[in-house]
């Protein structure tokens, strides 16, 4: 090995100086006695190398790049040999920023996958390989005291969400959760959340249906609609309240809200509507009286009121 490059730090803050040194051994054959060492950053030669001959005969050149403004570049130690530039060694330089504090950490308990899904905003680009880890622990009180740690949740590359599986969760106990971001230039941590997984449950809405025509049932009155809804099965064990919204399909009317409504209705008559009008209806539910998040609105159901 003829030449060897070493650097003060292969990764620096963007714009910071970086110092490198290249040593060319005396026994590197075919060379002049005192070869002139050249530096190349990317494809550009860099002036300012300070060369000296060491006691053991090796040649050493040191260069300081005052501001490394490339997020990624290769610094080569070269010399002229005959009429050609010869590269003897090369080092990869990286520059970027330490991770910002991850923001807006939030979590939802998903009953379909039985997992706690947390997401966050990673913050500005660091230009460096940056790892995010969702950390959490069980807690007796309100997360001031740390109980058993829960296995770190490592998101897939580039993702800003992670799922903690059911087997690591105590659904009805507090847990402290935060995100840690780390790269070569530093570590940062989001503010800590303290929550019980079931208190951030987000349900799926019930399924709205039209009433099957039945001889026993009276037909809907004018300006009324008859409908029913079936609860979302994985949440049957959860007390919920629901609300319905409706609006005429045509025109600019805004949604009208009806609620609170029960989780399940085998038959529901909605009145006070315009006769002979097509309506769009949606329903959503929330865990209640215990805390939770509103489900999304259900897919729309389109019904038409009868003539007067």
């Amino acid at each position: 090995e003829c030449g060897h490059v070493s650097v003060s730090a292969p990764i620096v803050h963007l714009g910071d100086p970086i110092t490198a040194s290249c040593i060319i051994k005396q026994n590197c054959s075919h060379l002049d006695l005192e070869p002139q060492i050249l530096w190349r950053l990317g494809a550009e030669l860099q002036p300012g190398g300070r060369q000296q001959r060491l006691s053991d005969g090796t040649q050493q050149s040191t260069i300081t790049l005052p501001h490394l403004n490339h997020t990624r570049a290769f610094l080569s130690c070269c010399l002229n040999w005959g009429n050609s530039l010869q590269i003897l060694d090369q080092v990869e330089l990286r520059a970027g920023y330490p991770p910002a504090i991850p923001r807006n950490l939030s979590c939802l308990m998903n009953l379909t996958t039985s997992s706690l899904i947390c997401q966050w905003e990673p913050g500005p680009e660091t230009h460096l390989p940056t790892s995010f880890t969702l950390k959490s622990f069980k807690s007796r009180g309100n997360c001031q005291t740390q109980g058993d740690s829960i296995l770190d949740c490592v998101p897939e590359d580039g993702q800003s969400h992670c799922s903690i599986p059911r087997r690591h969760l105590l659904l009805y106990q507090n847990m402290g959760i935060w995100v840690q971001a780390e790269n070569a230039l530093g570590t940062s941590m989001s503010p800590q959340l303290c929550l019980q997984p079931m208190d951030v449950v987000k349900l799926e809405p019930p399924m709205l249906r039209t009433m099957d025509p039945s001889p026993e049932a009276a037909p809907p009155q004018a300006g009324c609609l008859q409908l029913c809804w079936e609860p979302w099965q994985p949440a049957l064990h959860i007390n919920q309240k629901c609300e319905l919204r409706h609006k005429p399909q045509s025109g600019e009317a805004s949604w009208a809200l009806v609620g609170p409504l029960p989780l399940e209705a085998l038959r529901y008559e909605l009145c006070g509507l315009l006769p002979a009008t097509a309506y769009t209806l949606q329903i959503r539910c929330i865990r209640w009286p215990l805390p939770g998040h509103w489900s999304n609105w259900s897919p729309s159901l389109e019904l038409r009121t009868t003539e007067r």
Binding site: L171, Y172, M198, L236, H237, I238, N239, P289, L290
Partner: peptide, 16 residues
């Protein structure tokens, strides 16, 4: 009350 409501919810889940 929140303890009791949670317990009822948990019982229903386990029954399921």
């Amino acid at each position: 009350q929140s303890f009791l409501l949670k317990c009822l919810e948990q019982v229903r889940k386990i029954q399921g």
